[in-house]
Design a protein around this nucleic acid. Structure first.
Length: 767
DNA sequence: TTGCGCCATTTTTTT
DNA sequence: AATGGCGCAA
């Protein structure tokens, strides 16, 4: 029997799976079979060590990972183990808090979970109430500060402000937290923090869980934050075992409070902890691994690892420059079609990028080519206005104290409760000591109730209050789906969305999709439904069955693998992102992000950057990412990246008026070769380049291109040498008129690309 | 009160 | 390029 579980593992994996209970850290390189180790460990505990599943808790990073593990354990054990507790930190905490809600000081049963939009709403209210200027103190920044505090387990009471902004953040945080309690709502961070606080205050409650969870397994340990780590320590107590799996090279959530120093904390707090290193990779070719190691090695805090695989050799990496993002996208598509001809299936490829905004150009190209794709993230389903509205209705029905959700739908669809009425209404409700929805219900139910509303406003409020009362009553004995139907019917929501445009139809379809999620299952409670909906991640719903290329951000790619991976937009400012450029730490994280992307690839890795990238409608010259320079030359097909980087800058300087015919010029919109729908023409668009060098097409489209800029009035010309007082001598890459001033982009050797306002820069032309 | 149109600002990554 | 905030007209 024991053979079954261990014989398919390599020595290091076997060591981990069969380790004696106690603190253990598995350092798992990418593709080293960590899910395998985790699942086998759980199976081993149950079957070989006689541990009851009831005593095991496994924490994963996404719900999808939890499901996947559950599925694999089921296969290993020929059945579902009863009582095994598996899920994300957030889901596990939410469940625990629901169960212990009577022991919470500030919350009642039926609390709701606020998402970012709700949080922003609360912060805006807080700023208004505190008479603070939301221009000076942007709500998103405030929220960020609050979240950071919560991730570090800092409450409004323990918040130490060191400067004015800090003091403002503290005040907003204080107000915000009270508002959440009044709304009987928690945000994502609360789920974790309130659990820790509960355990702190109530040793008896903590003890209950300590007695239950003898074995705690943690996936993606490098991405735990201080609060999560504290929670693990609380649960582990003195007697329970922590089995942590992680890889600090794949830590990419520092901005969310993740602190990979928890790895060091782990050793500090558990001096007897064992470490097991998993270095054998079962995913990628050695070429891909070597390239990835070449990149990650440059990080100062990188712990040396030697990733190896039995898949010696492999195709070299291919780096190419495209003219602009649409050419880049078309080149990707062209290569994917090629790969499919070579026998790869439709879901073999993934295209990754740094920012969600980059998906647009790709999507357009896929649609243009008639190629199937699925997009992970972007405007996430549950963030869409119409979906949020419908959920807000359900939330108010579920928890009438939720004033944020009520505020969202009070006049959506418009029902004659305008701004003036709303203000009056909120004041009146507050005077009664009631939350708005509670007051509405009272107004509808009690004809004698004193109120200040005039005929029209009263009618509108009274009617809505009546509806709300009905829905609440309905929710007691009817399935979630039926309740949703009633709400949609009573509010005439479909008519509200139908504005005659395709977008209106889309929106209704989204609502129907949500209706599908609710299903007609009687046993799904409203509470469970809302929680489920609040805690889903976009990657959770990724099904691999669809024969489509996956489009996703590098962050979303973590934990996934694909035979063929395209990393696009590898340019300075994008990867590394411009917001990360002035901090060594953040730069290191950007590099890890690149590393994560590279190591998703099993067989082939394509890297691309563009010459011209458009952001916010105007485009500018881009420089290849510095990370490309760190890939060993011999692993790249064709020339090295460093060479290309220099070439690109040089080329930029010769490309203004004497631009050679490259076939790369952007075609005027609409001049694309048409007929893309015919299946016999699999290549409806003409790629500017192909990764397959010999298939590079001759330039078929000599359509005269409208000049992009009228440089007649610019003082500086591309290719000119200029001198700057601080940066020294550089080469002008481009210059354009921007408002009243001229914007000059200059490459300064050894310094980088600078964008300068000609009026202020004091540039001297020297050649 | 609603709805439209103009203006400003924006994008890093997400449970 | 797209969204949100704001002012004005109906």
């Amino acid at each position: 029997m024991g053979m079954d579980l261990l014989h398919s593992l390599n020595p290091a994996q076997r060591d981990a799976v069969s380790a004696t209970p106690g603190p253990l850290l598995v350092v798992a390189g990418p593709g080293s079979g960590k899910t395998r180790v985790l699942t086998h460990r759980i199976a081993y505990l149950i079957r070989e060590m006689g541990v009851s599943p009831w005593h095991i808790m496994a924490v994963t990073f996404t719900n999808k990972a939890a499901r996947e593990m559950e599925h694999r354990i089921e296969q290993l054990l020929d059945g579902r183990p009863q009582g095994l507790h598996m899920g994300t930190f957030h889901a596990i905490c939410a469940r625990l808090l629901r169960r212990e809600v009577d022991n919470l000081t500030h919350y009642q049963r039926d609390f709701v979970i606020f998402d970012t939009a709700d949080q922003l709403q609360v912060v805006k209210t807080a700023l208004a109430e505190l008479r603070l200027d939301d221009k000076k103190f942007p709500p998103a920044k405030m929220l960020n500060g609050i979240s950071t505090a919560k991730n570090d387990l800092i409450t409004p009471a323990t918040y130490q402000a060191t400067n004015y902004i800090g003091e403002i953040t503290r005040r907003v945080y204080e107000y915000y937290q009270l508002a959440l309690q009044t709304n009987n709502a928690m945000d994502f961070d609360d789920l974790l923090m309130q659990t820790v606080l509960l355990f702190d205050e109530r040793p008896d409650v903590l003890q209950k869980y300590q007695h239950r969870y003898h074995h705690i397994l943690v996936d993606e340990f490098q991405d735990t934050n201080a609060t999560q780590y504290r929670l693990l320590r609380q649960l582990a107590g003195d007697d329970n075992s922590i089995f942590a799996v992680g890889d600090s090279d794949q830590s990419i959530y520092k901005w969310r409070g993740a602190d990979y120093r928890n790895v060091q904390n782990f050793y500090r707090d558990y001096p007897t902890a064992r470490t097991i290193l998993l270095e054998q990779n079962y995913r990628s070719t050695q070429v891909i691994l070597d390239a990835a190691m070449g990149v990650i090695r440059r990080n100062a805090d990188h712990m040396p690892k030697k990733l190896f695989t039995e898949r010696k050799g492999g195709a070299k990496l291919i780096v190419r420059e495209a003219y602009n993002e649409s050419d880049e996208a078309n080149a990707v598509i062209d290569t994917i079609q090629d790969m499919m001809l070579q026998g790869y299936s439709g879901n073999a490829c993934a295209v990754m990028y740094r920012t969600n905004a980059q998906s647009r150009a790709l999507e357009e190209a896929f649609i243009g080519a008639g190629m199937p794709y699925r997009l992970v993230g972007a405007t996430q389903f549950y963030q869409r206005r119409e979906v949020k509205d419908v959920i807000a209705y359900l939330r108010v029905v579920h928890n009438p104290r939720d004033a944020v959700s009520l505020g969202r739908v009070l006049n959506v669809p418009t029902r004659g409760i305008g701004q003036a009425t709303q203000q009056q209404f909120y004041l009146w409700a507050a005077g009664l000591g009631l939350q708005p929805a509670e007051a509405l219900v009272r107004l509808a139910g009690d004809g004698d109730l004193q109120h200040p509303f005039t005929g029209r406003a009263y009618n509108a409020l009274h009617t809505f209050g009546g509806q709300l009362t009905n829905w609440i009553a309905l929710s007691e004995h009817v399935a979630v789906g039926d309740l949703l139907d009633a709400i949609l019917r009573d509010t005439r929501y479909q008519a509200h969305l139908d504005d005659g445009t395709d977008e209106g139809v889309d929106r209704w379809e989204n609502v129907m999709e949500l209706r599908g999620v609710a299903g007609s299952d009687e046993s799904l409670s409203l509470s469970d439904f809302l929680q489920q909906v609040a805690l889903v991640a976009e990657t959770d719903n990724l099904d691999n069955a669809a024969q489509a290329t996956t489009l996703l951000t590098l962050h979303a790619a973590k934990g996934l693998e694909f035979p063929i991976v395209f990393l696009t937009g590898l340019e300075e400012g994008l990867l590394p992102h411009s917001r990360s450029m002035d901090s060594e730490d953040e730069l290191a994280e950007e590099r890890r992000l690149f590393y994560v992307g590279m190591t998703r690839a099993k067989d082939r890795l394509y890297l691309s950057h563009v010459f011209r990238r458009s952001t916010w409608g105007d485009s500018s010259v881009a420089v290849p990412s510095r990370f490309l320079n760190d890939i060993p030359e011999e692993l790249l097909e064709g020339g090295g990246a460093g060479q290309r980087r220099r070439q690109s800058i040089d080329r930029a300087s010769t490309w203004s008026d004497t631009r050679p015919r490259t076939g790369l010029e952007r075609r005027p919109a609409g001049s694309q070769p048409s007929g893309g729908t015919a299946p016999s023409t699999p290549r409806p668009t003409t790629p500017a380049f192909s990764w397959d060098a010999d298939r590079r097409l001759p330039k078929p489209n000599p359509a005269p291109e409208p000049r992009r800029e009228r440089p007649a009035t610019t003082r500086f010309k591309t290719g000119q040498k200029v001198r700057h007082t601080k940066f020294g001598v550089g080469t002008v890459i481009e210059s354009k008129i921007n408002g009243a001033d001229e914007e000059v982009t200059v490459a300064f050797p050894g310094i980088g690309i600078k964008r300068l306002a000609a009026g202020f820069a004091g540039l001297e032309i020297i050649g």
